[in-house]
Structure formats: structure tokens, C-alpha cells
Design a protein around this nucleic acid. Sequence first.
RNA 1: GGGGCGUUAGCGCAGUUGGUAGCGCGCAACACUGGCAGUGUUGAGGUCACGGGUUCGACUCCCGUACGCUCCA
Length: 871
Amino acid sequence: MKTVDEIREDFLSFFEKKHNSKRVKSSSLIPDNPTILLTTAGMVQFIPYFLGLEKFPYDPPRATSCQKCARAGGKDSDIENVGRTPRHHTFFEMLGNFSFGDYFKEEVIPWSWDFVTNYLKLDKNRLWITIYEDDDEAGEIWQKVGVPKERIIKKGKKDNFWGPVGTSGSCGPCSEIHYDLGEHLKCSDDCSIATCECNRWVEIWNLVFTELFQDEEGNLSPLEKKNVDTGMGLERIAMVCQGVDSTFETDLLKQILDKICEITGKKYKENPKNDISLRIITDHARCVSFMIADGILPSNEGRGYVLRMILRRALRHGYILGLELPFMKPIIDKVVDIYKDAYPELGQNRDKIQDVILKEEERFNLTLKRGWSHIEELIKKIKENNKNEISGEEAFKLYDTYGFPYELTKEIADENNLKVDEEGFKAHMQEQKDRARASVQKISLVDDLVYVDNPQTEFLGYEKNTCTSKVINIIENEDTLDVILDKTVFYAQSGGQEGDTGVFIKADGTKIEVLETFKVQDVFVHRVKKSDIKVSDEITAQIDVIKRQETQKHHSLAHLLQAALIKVLGDEVHQAGSQVEKNRTRYDFSLSRAMTKDEIKKVEEIINDWINQGIERKTEVMGIEEARLTGAMALFGEKYGETVRVVSFGTDECISKELCGGCHVDNTKDLRLAKIVSESAIAAGVRRIEILCSSAAFDFLNQKACAIDEIAQKNKIPYTQIEDKIEKIETQNRELNAKIEELEAKIAQSSFSTFISKAKDIEGGKLFITKIEDFAPNAIKAGVETISKKLGECIIVLCSIKQDGSAFVIASVSDSFVKKGIQAGKIVGEITRKMGGGGGGRPQLAQGAGKDASKADEILAEVEKNILSSL
RNA sequence: GGGGCGUUAGCGCAGUUGGUAGCGCGCAACACUGGCAGUGUUGAGGUCACGGGUUCGACUCCCGUACGCUCCA
């Protein structure tokens, strides 16, 4: 019996040794491609070669790999099926072989058959082939290698045609090898490969022949360079080779499953419901281990969210099996143990993986605890209202807002003899999905064909600031001209670096101002003011040297910043965009949290240290694969040609190495000084740093220093004491305010005490209405309380006249009077409305304010009359 | 990329038509008890995350920002 490790090695060496293919390492689960969430197939890392954007750096252009893949979240998600079926996974290994315009159907079909029958020694009588209905060519080749015609099944576009990915692009038919696990698994009497997708039939190998191009209208035309892309799920083929019913029983996964059985005390294949949970934990534990090893961290966004979702799903199923959080550690140890040889990154990151998972388990515990108190409250309310159901909306809110799993809601409802409206829950879920989908922005690419139709511009700007060029083409805009030259020194905006400005000098000495420079593919476009310039004119192109120099500094600064960030924050940091200008660098990067002050300081110190060391810059031009091997960092959103430019700082000890077409200083000491100005969030999971160097940094610091000096001078203290001074002023202020309040209250109370004797006797208590001088509202409130206590049952109305002629009115009414229908709120309302204001409060105590208190006496007299009459 | 929710004392949290900011734990002082861990009394501690707006008046309503939680893509 072949083990998983043996099958993996057999496959790779079969293509490497026998068919002269380059064995390529699995790429990270984080794809080098911003449009893809996770690496979902072996071909992902080869996309640039398939599209012809880059040339495969080995001859012949064939590759083979065993690729780590994750399918969870997004279109390719298999997560719903995991556990329910015997062979779905969120993480799996995909064996593949690839041809970039090299071998095609004629070769690859016999090779595949050779491998499956002679190396894996699979029973030919159990193998079936499917082909695309129009692909007779493939059918004939399969027959030639010895597959009987009746075992070759034609299928339609849905099953056996791949692509294109978007509305247009390369695509082509596929051919699949299937294995019949045996009649005992048949789903019905007419179970057949042609119609069934039941568990009897396993697709073991998919061969994609990319030979067509589909345009926007859906027309197909043959491709010049035909590619082959194949994929064979390692777990599935192992399952077939090892003669077991599910991938979970193959030698490696079985060990994880056994470990979980051991911890839970459950036996596999004893209870179908438990089996689902066991399989889910097995699969998910492996998936999260690999994801974390590749630098993904749990978050509420993007692939970090996918990780969290998978991990929490595993935790829920652990709970279902009776485990208490945290419980993942021994399982993860098992995963690392069995995969660390094939994937060293697991062994190297064992502690990190354990740490991240433990933290997430703790966090989930907290979420559950919070959710628990919400649902308890909810159930109490439901019972009080004599209802017997948790509505779909409530269940959804628990899930959506508080992250409380639906299964748990259901379980708790059961315990309390309540039902849950599952339909309603699903409806809300669907609504949320629709909303999310509707808001996905459609990105449209507009091709600037006017520009592309010109010859490629030669760029001399790395070495020179000026050159003589010939005008090749001019495109007229509303009030500018776009000039295209045969060669130029103007750097065009790209890679985040701003384009050059400068001048064209004509033969007669007249100057034309160049406003901006940009690039459409390899054509440089100089936008100039409308002026007298014609095609085939000879001009001298001259850039604004100062601007270029300052821009270069800030570009090099961006590279140093990137390197320093990784040093301080780890591999989680990925560039998410940057803008380099003559007086600042704006740098966006992925990070799931805010940076601390210390981290920011540390980054700044590292950069300044590098600047002081005077590290030399080196620029090399090399093949893309070579560059990748040397560890140069490639950035998203950039297309690289066959050869790339690698900009690095430091020769002995390399500090930074990036693929970059931009302009840089010769030595870090040219930057003179680096200063981080701000760190902030621009989107969930993306932070932005603004950083300055050279004169921009000095200007910034000077400005700040001036402001500080001014404050120090005004306060007549050294600047080092500003902080203390402000703190002192603050406490002083607070103390003073407290004291003022205290005094006001005292004054109010002492003057109020004289009021007691002035209160009128009325039926059932005392009445006191008067106009008073200006007191602070809080003092009046306190005063009213004291008088009210002393008077016993009473009605008090005070109107405090402020210096600006407005009034603050307060009324207090004892309970016994409230019962008689006298309400403080109404009294205050009546008075303040007449003064052009408003107010209100409780029946016992109310306050308000009026703008015009000039008629206060009459108003109060009237109010008194009203109160007396209503008693 | 799109939703939902949160931010109140050192910590955990209340705070309903907008009207003088509270509870539990912890902290400090004092008293009691003598089982060395308690009990009681008193007290300190708040820019109600930040910035606008509405209002006579905003912890409370509206808008924005930050940080965090959570779901969907």
C-alpha cells in the first residue's frame, strides 16, 4: 500500500525525471494575486505564465507541483460539504503538471494513463474517462492508449469545459479520469458514471486543455499557445490507492482523526452524527494549521475571516462532541507532526500556530459567554410574553451581531421547550447575502487604445536627466496635448511613484512645460500645455531635477519602511498600495490592528539607523524566476516583464529587496532623516502610514518645534515642562470648578434659607414662587432640594434671572400636590413658553429656560393665581 | 466591499417617552471580630470614546471619526 508521502513523491518525480518538468515548490496559501482570496488550485501560482504575461524561466516550459490548496469562503467554497461527504475538504494537496505552450493532449493523455495504471497500478476495469462532448481529439487519444470506447463518456459544458474566468479569456475542454469504488456503493439500480455524482464515483484527475480564446461576445477562436493544466487531489488518489471509503481514512488524515477520537472518547463509525463532527474537526484542524503557518491571522475580514470561520466551526463541533474550550492543542500538534517533513513551515511555526489558535479559542469563549447572556435574556422575555418561539429575526441577530452559533441557539431553545423559526432565520441570512452581493463593485477596464498603438518608448531616466528625443505622435485633448517620444528621461507614474514634470526645449529655444507623465503599457505619455509642437520635431527633454531627487528619496524611504515594518510587525504586513511624491510617502499595508506607539517609534528608529549607516543601493536586472529565488519581494498590482529590475539596499547584509521599476537614491544617507507623521486606519485590516524624509521631514519637525516654542514662551517655561504645565492647569481647572460649584451651592443655600419663612401657607402645605438673582443651575437645583425638605409638602417655583435677560426656571412639587393634579413640568412649561423658551421634566421636578425674562413678575403672579385656583 | 452591534468609575456592567450618572467586585480610611479570613460604616474614583448638529437642556436623538466585536461577500 502506498502512503500519501509516497504517492506525492512518485507523482513529482514521474514528471520531473521521466518528463523533464521543473519541480516547483508549493506556493503560499496567500496568492501572489490580489484578486484571489486563497490559493485554490495548483495552477494559481502559474497564472502569469498561462496568460503569457511572463515567460516560464526554464526550458522546456513544463512544471509539476504539489500545491497546498484551501477552498473555503468565496466562490470555490467547499465548506458546506466538509464532514457530510467522505471526501470534501477545506484544505487539500493538489498534484499537478503544467505545460506553458509546450506538450499538449497527444503527450499528456498517455502520460497520465501511464502513471495511473503502471505506477499507481490502479485496476483498468475500474477507470472511466469523461471528455467534453465536442472534443473528439481527446477521445481518440484515450482510445489509442487502450481505453475502450464504452468507458469514454461525453459530457457537456458544465462538467467538462473550463473557463474563461471572467467574461472573456482563455478556456478549453477538460478530460477527467474517474474511479469506480465498487458496486456496493451504488446509489440506485441505474447508477452510472454518465449520470451520477454519488459517492461511488471519484474524480481522481482533471486534465484541462486550454486551447481556445473566448471574446466578449462569446465567440471562440483557437489559441496560438496551448496550455495544459492538470489537477489530482492527493487525498482522493490516496483513498483509492489505499482502498478505503473516505479520504479521512487515508494514512495521514486517519492519524488526526484518531487523535480526536482519543480526546473525545468517541469511536469513528459508531454514530453517523458524531462522524460528521469528527471529520469536520479533522479537516479544519489541518486547514487552520496550514493557514496560520502561511501568515494568515484570524480577523473579521478577508482571508483572516475565513480562517476564523473555519476554526470556530471546528470548535463548535468539538463542543457538540462534549469538549470544553480550549481543546485544540493536541490535535494541532498531531497535524504539525505528520506534515512537518513535507511542509517545513509547519514545524517552524508550531508555537505560533498553537498560540494563535489558543487565543482564538479564548476569544470565541468570550463571544459565546456574551451570546449566552443575550439568549437568556431573550428567553426570559419570550416566556414573559407567553410565546413559545424564538423568531427568525432574533435567532439571526444572535448569530449576525453577536456571533452566537445557530446550532447553539437551537439547542438552548430545545432545553427551554421553545421552537426556533428556521425559515425566518434562513430568510434573513439570504437577505444579508443578497445585500452583500449587490454591493460588490464592478470594475471595468478601459483600454487606452489611442496610446497603445504607438511604439514602445525607450526609458533613459535611470541614468540621465536630459536627452534629445523625437516626437512620434501627438494626441490632442481639450486644453492639453499628449506627446509620445521615441525615447525619454521622464519617469511615468507607476509603482506608486509620481510621474516626472519638466520641460521640452525646442530647437529654437522655446520651452514647453510638461505637466505630468504616465504610462500605458510600454508607451510613455507626456502631457503638455497646448503649444506649437509637431510630429517628428526634435526636442530636448529635461526633467525637474529637484522634484525627481526628492521623489527618489521618498521612494527609497518607502522600501525602507516596508522592510522595517516586517521587522517589527512580522510577515503579516503586505503592501496594499503606496504613493510616492516629492514631499511625502504614503504607504498602505495590511495589519489587523492599530500599531502601538512603541511599534511606530521602533520602525522610525530602524529606518533612521539604516539612513545613518549609509547603505548603498544596488539595482540589478534579472529573470523573474531568479529574482523570486533570491527572495525579492514582488508587489501586488504590478505586472512584471520577462526580466525585472530588483532594487536592494545593503550588499553584505541585505535589508530590503523589491522588484521595482522606480527611481531611487544611491545611498540611504541621502534621505538624511525619516519621520513618521501619522498612522491610521483606511479600511478594516488596512493601515496607512504617512512618512517624510529629507527636507520635508526637517520642515515638518521645524513647524512642530515652532509651535511648541510658542506655547513655551507664552507660558514662560522651558518646552520640556509643557506637559506638566498643562496637566497642572487641568487639575487646577477641575479644582476651581469644583470650588466654584461648592461656593455657588453655599451662597444659594444661604440665600434660600431666608425663603423658608416667606413661603405662603396653602391648603395641604406651602407655596413659594419667586424671582431670584443669577445662580448656577446646579446650585439652584441643590437649593430647591434643601428648601423642599425643610418645608415638607410644598410647591416651589424659582425663576433665576441671568444678566443677559434670559431666565432659568425650576419647579418642585411634592407628591401630595402631584396627586392633586399639579405638575412641575406643566408649571415650567407655562412659564418658559411665555418667555420664548421651553422646558419640562418629571411631575416632581422640572426645569427649563426662557429667552426673555422682562415680564417675569407678571408671569409668575399669573402662575401663582392659576395654582391657587386649581387647588 | 456591504451590514449589525458596542464604547459609562481600576474591572464587569445597569441606565425608556431627553430633565441633578448608578450597581457589583476591587480600592482607601475607620470600627468590629479573632477562626487571619471575614463583617460593618464612611469615602475616593467619571471630559458617559472623540468631533459636530438638534434642543432651554443630550449619557440618552441625528451625522461623522476612532477603536473593538460580529455576520455576509
